[in-house]
Design a protein around this nucleic acid. Structure first.
Lengths: 239, 239
DNA sequence: GCTTCCGATAATGTAAACAATAATTCGGTC
DNA sequence: GACCGAATTATTGTTTACATTATCGGAAGC
């Protein structure tokens, strides 16, 4: 049977449910603060409650949901203050990675980073915000990856993903994009020049700029973690 | 029935099992590489498999165990290389926290840190390695806590705990202890002097020193992640 | 009219049973 | 005697059912 369509199962049901939940949360169908009804989700996804529970617990550790005993799992609401802290941590790690890369950057890596830069330039020109966003994320992630510290990379990825819960595309204006890419270019120059100290400084500063852009972007957009607040007997975890 | 001995339940069974497993792993009864047999553990702890599974999944996210589909959960073995990466990340975060503290340290906080320093001095004098170890851990943790970045603090705590899996007390010689505490004192001086740049540098350097002490401590102690290796059909996850 | 208490309902926590998968063992063959 | 293969066994993955807990509605009392 060469036409074996089902690629068997390399993923447990729990992991598949987890992916589904991430999608539902990312798409906004499960807004921050919403409760994850186990039976409803299980029915909807065609599985039992077990895998749903496992997925919820896994997502709790990922930081996407909060689980309260006998109350259930809630889509996590990230406050601005916490987002600021994540940015701060990312800044430190990104700066370190940049410095590390400045002293040990292979030609292949440099080429890859340059390619992202070009792609972002192109996206800015074409005003393709999504393309820019994707390349931007990858540029940062690759720098972490190239730094050679897998642990730090994982922490960075995990928290960045969590962050994207809150800011769904804070690059509203094209101005932000070209501004950001200019910083990218300066950073890459420092890396290629082998100036670790400057690379670190620029890397940290760039993340802080990103934080500032994020802040100004959500300024009027507000509507943060405040749900309708009509009545929330089983819809809001703490207070 | 006023003699209701059970103090109700503020912790889910899964959490209690998780605590038990942490104890078993910490005590070495479940050595690195060992498989967590669900039925055996469930029977031993007097619960069902469900809570055991939940605890195992939770510990996976904590980094204490690795679970493989259809194979089970294994007590994680942390390689030296990974430990080095954790040290590196901790170094960056600790340095940042120290710098942050240098510009904003309350009198109360300074007093608390000084107290730990004194306690460590006392422990060195009395040659109480355990006491020194405890105070040392707290000193570092408090600096992270005082830095005001809860996210970073959590990441630091989580990975430090994971690290203690490997190095169970690497302060063999009293020399290491006094050396470490001298570094602590210099760091605290820089913090109290408000020299953020120096504090950061010293903080990073101190963690690197710790890493070096760790490395030299396990040098001859080897016996790292290598189990008896007699036969490991279901006892070793990857290879 | 408001509060308080109590029962009904729905949801989560836990346990036990069933199914699928990996590992072991035994048997056969080269 | 060593190697390969199928049946057996053990263990995990998943489902179902039961127990416990929290929430919601309404009636009684103030």
């Amino acid at each position: 049977m060469s036409t074996k369509s089902a690629p068997d199962r390399v993923l447990s049901l729990g992991e598949k449910v987890k992916a589904s939940l991430e999608g539902l949360i990312g798409s906004g169908e499960l807004p921050p603060g919403a409760r994850l009804n186990e039976v409803a989700l299980a029915k909807r996804l065609g599985v039992s409650r077990g895998p749903v529970r496992e997925a919820a617990r896994a997502l709790e550790k990922t930081g996407l949901v909060t689980v309260i005993l006998n109350r259930g799992a809630f889509v996590r609401t990230m406050g601005i203050d916490e987002a600021m802290q994540v940015y701060e941590m990312n800044s430190v790690m990104f700066g370190f990675a940049a410095a590390r890369l400045a002293v040990a950057c292979t030609g292949e890596q440099a080429m890859a980073l340059r390619a992202f830069l070009a792609e972002m330039d192109r996206a800015i020109e074409a005003e393709e915000k999504d393309a820019f966003f994707a390349a931007n994320v990858l540029f940062h992630e690759r720098i972490l990856a190239f730094s050679g510290n897998a642990v730090m990379e994982q922490v960075y990825l995990e928290h960045t993903r969590k962050l994207q819960l809150l800011r769904r595309r804070s690059f509203d204006r094209t101005g932000s994009m070209s501004e950001a890419n200019a910083e990218h270019r300066r950073l890459l120059d420092a890396i290629l020049a082998g100036d670790a100290s400057l690379a670190r400084q620029l890397g940290e500063a760039h993340t802080r700029s990103g934080r500032a852009r994020f802040l100004s972007a959500i300024e009027y957009r507000d509507g943060l973690q405040l749900a309708p607040a009509a009545k929330r007997p089983r819809s809001q975890p703490a207070a």
